[in-house]
């Protein structure tokens, strides 16, 4: 922004520090499309051989990757929908509506949104066993959504807080019920928030590993992270090229989503951390 200083030293320093990441990204893509010779970093000729897991099992006995992909979509999409719907309503109620125990719920919300959720995995595991949702997609979706919820409500509340009260008052004066005001006048104002939260929770769920691994490890509910880890575990020899190819396939949707929507996504970091 300011022109008074040289930028070259900054470039050099940043580039050096970013080097490990850049190398990883570069070889992530290069290795999957070339013949890799062990012990050499020079890319070999182009090949699609590494991608054969798309039409045959990656390892004998492994399920097809497409079932896992579908499960991942259901998992991430389901989580996103639940988080969006519950946060959009609860955030509005906490921001705008008078109701009993409001301040109690607000305090609870702030505490929960910082609360370290992974600690609960043991009892959540036992609860799902008891209520019979263990090893189902529904179960792990509900858990993921519940754990995302405090942050989601918090962020949505932040967005609602920024909508002028007068819009709401004008709507009420115009004869609209509070529900209509919310649905037709306020929701359209917080679309950036909904978009950010939706993208955020989709990406989170898409990449999630521990929850599905523990709560839904079975073949029917297997998501890509669990699938990929299973492939990694079944290997005695680390076949990095295979892992990377599966990984690239796995990560492609999130990278694409990120590149398209990163401006929208960044809203979450503004909305979520306001004091």
């Amino acid at each position: 922004m300011t022109k008074n200083f040289k930028t070259l030293p900054v470039y050099i320093l940043l580039s050096v520090l970013s080097l490990p990441l850049v190398i990883m990204y570069a070889y992530l893509v290069i290795d999957t499309f070339t013949v890799t010779t062990p012990g050499s970093l020079v890319p070999g000729p182009f090949t699609l051989h590494n991608w054969r897991f798309l039409w045959e099992p990656a390892k004998p006995g492994q399920a097809s990757i497409w079932a896992a992909t579908l499960n991942t979509f259901l998992f991430a999409g389901g989580t996103m929908l639940i988080v969006l719907m519950t946060s959009a309503t609860a955030g509005y109620a906490l921001s705008r509506l008078r109701m009993p125990m409001r301040s109690f719920m607000l305090a609870g919300l702030i505490m929960l949104h910082a609360f370290p959720t992974v600690t609960l995995i043991i009892s959540v595991f036992l609860i799902l066993q008891i209520i019979g949702l263990y090893d189902t997609l529904i179960g792990v979706i509900l858990v993921r959504a519940a754990l995302d919820l405090p942050l989601g409500v918090w962020i949505m509340k932040g967005f609602y807080d920024n909508v002028p009260w007068e819009i709401e008052m004008a709507g009420v004066q115009d004869g609209a019920s509070r529900f209509t005001v919310w649905w037709r006048l306020i929701l359209p104002q917080i679309q950036p928030g909904l978009a950010a939260l939706g993208i955020f929770s989709f990406l989170q769920a898409w990449s999630e590993f521990i929850l599905p691994q523990v709560l839904a490890p079975g073949a029917n509910a297997q998501v890509l992270s669990v699938y990929m880890q299973a492939v990694v575990k079944s290997e005695t020899q680390m076949d990095f090229t295979l892992f990377k190819t599966i990984g690239l396939f796995y990560t492609l949707p999130v990278v694409v989503i990120y590149l398209i929507f990163n401006k929208k996504l960044m809203n979450i970091y503004g909305g979520g951390t306001k004091g």
């Binding site: 639940i82 719907m85 519950t86 946060s87 309503t89 609860a90 509005y92 109620a93 906490l94 509506l97 008078r98 109701m99 009993p100 409001r102 719920m105 929960l112 959720t117 600690t119 609960l120 043991i122 009892s123 959540v124 036992l126 609860i127 509900l142 858990v143 959504a145 519940a146 754990l147 919820l149 405090p150 409500v153 509070r178 529900f179």
Partner: peptide, 30 residues
């Protein structure tokens, strides 16, 4: 509006209760 507010909170409260608050308590129990 109290009803609307509580209605709007219900899904969030139920979900948080079932998979957040109860797990906290049950961690203690277990």
């Amino acid at each position: 509006s109290h009803l609307l507010g509580l209605g709007f909170m219900t899904p969030a409260i139920l979900l948080t209760l079932a998979l957040f608050i109860i797990p906290v308590v049950l961690t203690g129990v277990f």
